[in-house]
């Protein structure tokens, strides 16, 4: 069935790049915009700036679709683009941003380099851990489909549920959106050390009232 919500990002990118398919573009936005906006909002602490950064990324994705080549996962590509957009934004400002001042301070400090390399972790790892903490299998289905490019059959096999269950979850737009928002917010809440795991789980469950 051509249900855009169950297509993997490779197929969506193909449709976008070769058929100018706006529905595929829209589906990619639905999948990733919450993560990008939550990420951009947290780093900028400003909704308008977050919106501008994400808007620029998607407008470029559409306008340059034919030349675009994404290596690795689209999620990583988009999150990296948010970071890039953030740096561009602060450099375009006349005044020194809070971030730049903080960076100045950081650069003058003594640092333990091994620790810093550990910090270069993938958001994807955080996402996977988050998915584990969600009620029933929905979080896992969501993450496996949209971030690991697995088809409904493979997910069903891996999680010991029926293909129909996987498809049902993915085609329920409202449920899917809530899950995406929940994951996106939880992702930005997630402290790197994971010491406050319990608090985070509680916070997730608070706004994630699942049917």
């Amino acid at each position: 069935m051509l249900n855009y919500s169950t297509l993997d990002e490779k197929a969506l990118l193909m449709l976008l790049q070769q058929q100018d398919d706006h529905a595929a573009f829209s589906e990619l936005y639905d999948r990733f915009s919450h993560f990008m906006l939550a990420y951009a909002q947290k780093i900028t602490q400003n909704q308008d700036e977050a919106k501008d950064i994400v808007q620029t990324i998607f407008v470029n994705l559409w306008s340059n679709r034919t030349q675009l080549s994404v290596k690795g996962s689209l999620f990583n590509y988009l999150i990296t683009s948010v970071r890039y957009g953030f740096y561009k934004l602060i450099r375009s400002k006349q005044v020194v941003s809070k971030y730049e001042a903080d960076l100045q301070q950081y650069l003058s400090e003594e640092r333990d380099t091994t620790d810093e390399y550990i910090q270069e972790r993938e958001l994807m790892e955080r996402l996977e851990r988050l998915a584990e903490s969600f009620p029933d299998t929905m979080g896992k289905v969501f993450v496996l489909t949209y971030f690991h490019q697995l088809g409904p059959e493979e997910i069903a096999e891996r999680l010991h549920i029926s293909v129909r269950t996987v498809q049902n979850l993915l085609s329920q737009a409202g449920r899917r959106a809530r899950l995406g928002i929940g994951l996106a917010i939880a992702l930005t809440l997630m402290a790197p050390q994971l010491t406050e795991k319990q608090t985070i789980e509680n916070k997730i469950k608070k706004f994630l009232i699942l049917p």
């Binding site: 909002q41 909704q47 903080d102 960076l103 650069l107 910090q119 917010i185 930005t188």
Partner: peptide
């Protein structure tokens, strides 16, 4: 590394509705 540290230090001000 600095970006991640700075990111984690920022407040979370966005609610699900806002997002």
């Amino acid at each position: 590394a600095h970006f991640n540290r700075y990111f984690d230090q920022q407040q979370d001000s966005l609610s699900a509705e806002d997002l």
